[in-house]
Design a protein around this nucleic acid. Sequence first.
DNA 1: TACGATTACGAAACCGGTTTCGTAAAGCCG
DNA 2: CGGCTTTACGAAACCGGTTTCGTAATCGTA
Lengths: 359, 359
Amino acid sequence: MEEIRDTVSQGRGGTRRVRISDLAEALGLTKSTVSRALNNYADIAPETRRRVAEMAAQMGYAPMPYAQAVRTGRVRALGLVLELDAPDRYGPFLADFLGGITQEATLEGWTLTVASSNSREEMEATVTRLLQEHKVDGFILPRTMVEDPRVDFLRAKHVPFVLFGRVGHGKPDPGLSWYDVDGAEAMRAAVARLAALGHKRIGFVGPSAAYNFAVLRREGYQAGLAEAGISFDPALEIMEVSDRAGGAQAARDLLDLPQPPTAIVYATDATALGAYDVARERGLRIGRELSVISYDGIPEGRMIDPPLTSFAVDSRHAGERLAALLIAQLRGADPAGLQELVVARLEPGGSDGPPPSVS
Amino acid sequence: MEEIRDTVSQGRGGTRRVRISDLAEALGLTKSTVSRALNNYADIAPETRRRVAEMAAQMGYAPMPYAQAVRTGRVRALGLVLELDAPDRYGPFLADFLGGITQEATLEGWTLTVASSNSREEMEATVTRLLQEHKVDGFILPRTMVEDPRVDFLRAKHVPFVLFGRVGHGKPDPGLSWYDVDGAEAMRAAVARLAALGHKRIGFVGPSAAYNFAVLRREGYQAGLAEAGISFDPALEIMEVSDRAGGAQAARDLLDLPQPPTAIVYATDATALGAYDVARERGLRIGRELSVISYDGIPEGRMIDPPLTSFAVDSRHAGERLAALLIAQLRGADPAGLQELVVARLEPGGSDGPPPSVS
DNA sequence: TACGATTACGAAACCGGTTTCGTAAAGCCG
DNA sequence: CGGCTTTACGAAACCGGTTTCGTAATCGTA
């Protein structure tokens, strides 16, 4: 008699939630001892710690994050702010990326809170609100820029964060935590591949140099040229291209040069598709009269004829690692040691081949 | 003397967070009175309510959701579980959809928590965890199925939710809250459009009938036929098609019939692109020898030649309305009154035209 | 064996709110 | 004008945890 208390909601499933006090009662301990046992305090006897852990598992006890948060200020949630004003719409990779983050976060008992913004001001307002309401403990920042205002903003607030991509050209800030795919290496390899096929004039089409990845990929392209002993011709490099139509226009511009390239390296698949449009316009065969290699590995590249030779990025893995890095940092790891650079996987298609033999 | 207390973190930005007790002190009231004033309790004098609201605004007071949650159990967060095992990867619409949800949620002071699952079991486990940890107050369920296990699951737990799409064929459960785009009407209009152009044999290609939208679109197709006085031929209807390759195979099968169709209505753009591949294979011109109309309005449909005539869905708007509906429900509105059906917008392309004149 | 240092736990305050309950003061009515 | 309702607020408990602090019991050592 005493069992008959609050019929209140709580465990919506039917069986009532088990609270820390229930656990304590079942163990004949106080909730303070149980709490410290669960949080690995030093002043708990090993045997007691074991008993508590066992009973917790048996009773299915799980602390309510928000109740903990009242005291600790941590809610075990990662934050992601999507930029709706981005030139591309994150392409088809968003689902994989989110899948990677959430799967990894779930494994560790964390969750992901997503917000969005249409401008830098809105982004700062959103971040501020998420922090002020303590809805989030740290941030994942996709799509880094060479000079990224988010980095300064979050640093000033002392909020942990991890970058998808690096900042500041190729000389990354050692104090930052990031995950990146080596786009420079991919572009270098693309040029090497084309040079090996016999190409001498190789063009490059990339997006705005405000994005760090664009800068790195351009550097990789130039490094590839140098390595192949081909001198760099600025006329063959076109930047500020972000969509298929832009990619097509860039192809036209390059092909209309007095000495047109026989191959074009595109920094992104979406823009490379524009080359196919131009090839059709002009009766050129991709992979024969014009070779194309690009980067991203979008599904459509596999469907198109001939399939696009591309360096594929594993967005799912990126999400997983970014979540893992941020969680490590939130658990106290030094961000300076949390960096990962992976390579893109070459998916050979039919879009690259030897150059047409010069008459 | 007393001012010198916790230098603790809290207001990460620098200025300390203002708590309800600060507000109370500034007003010369107790925090209980302030709390009730802010929550519109009846036993607060109008003048007091006004003073409190004013001071709160002036001091920039905002309650911490998780502190409220300890007592109320509500965290002002919407939940969304992405299904990674879905046939398509949500296509290119996910960013818009998430943008819509989060923008609307932000306006109302709510946030979005995203999780993912690879199977039904995992989905139930994830939902259970989010509820148990009180990370979420209600769910948005995308991609409804005719018999949707999530509906029964959440209903049994008495958790508020809103559906993107309906369930149970065309006879929606009146107790459910949902937002849907009228795919049946779009398919009916597609058939009417083709019939008006002179087509007599019109095929239909749709995805698995397990998805409610597939069933509805098929019904719309058949309704369109009836309306146009064309008798339904089961041989012209192919289901279980979910990707471009499948769409291509369906087109081949239809064109290989003794009496092939002169037009095909596809339930989704992604599959309709397969018709273009087959047309190229066979030397048919889309919009001349073969007409195609489909549904979704994917960007690629605009790029392809000829542009795909399609009924476009506004994913952003869908996200906004779903968030609004769920928030309304969480604020106490009766789900029975929360349904919205909108129409898809026809985007005419060049993929439909009069049938080739019969010899 | 006596005494200081450790060990392991309990008691209670605390986090930032919400909600119940009690009660002075004001209002109403005959 | 006296008794009964309202009105409007304060006091205190509460939500589910965490953390500080105090203290018995055990240990080690001289």
